[in-house]
Amino acid sequence: MKKEIKFHLNGEEVVAEVEPHWTLLYFLRNVMKLKGTKEGCGYGECGACTVVVDKRAVNACLYPILEVDGKKVITIEGLSKPDGQLHFIQKSFIEEGAVQCGFCTPGMIMSAYALYEEKENPDEEDIKEAIEGNLCRCTGYIKIVQAIKSAKRRQQ
């Protein structure tokens, strides 16, 4: 019962045969073996699986795989350059101490990335809106908000 989809994943075209009941998260982790996108709950309640589809942050665990056909998907693996140069949000998370156990980090960063795609200079309210669906148990969010806020000045 497999169906074919074609879409852009981290800038490269992907053509794949997929089962219709798969989620985007299942496809990324189990077919593409991209393990950077995490499953924290599977119900859209924690944001650990956040990826960006056509510039919008979504929970990959609730995204039907067939719906990505023709779309552009960016995951945490697509943020840094192939030469290893990190995205300015990634740099900021490192430098501001926004990472502890790190499990929420990829989803958190993807939410922040979508925010920067939408707004050049997000304020604190924008940041909170962007990551209100990303749970973190380690940091108390203070350094995460700070990292997103100060990310811009790390952009070259």
């Binding site: 859209g44 929970n59 609730l62 979508a114 809106e129 669906g133 990303n134």
Partner: peptide, 9 residues
């Protein structure tokens, strides 16, 4: 409603 990720779909 929900979160940004939820409101996006």
């Amino acid at each position: 409603l929900g979160s940004k990720q939820i409101r996006n779909v």
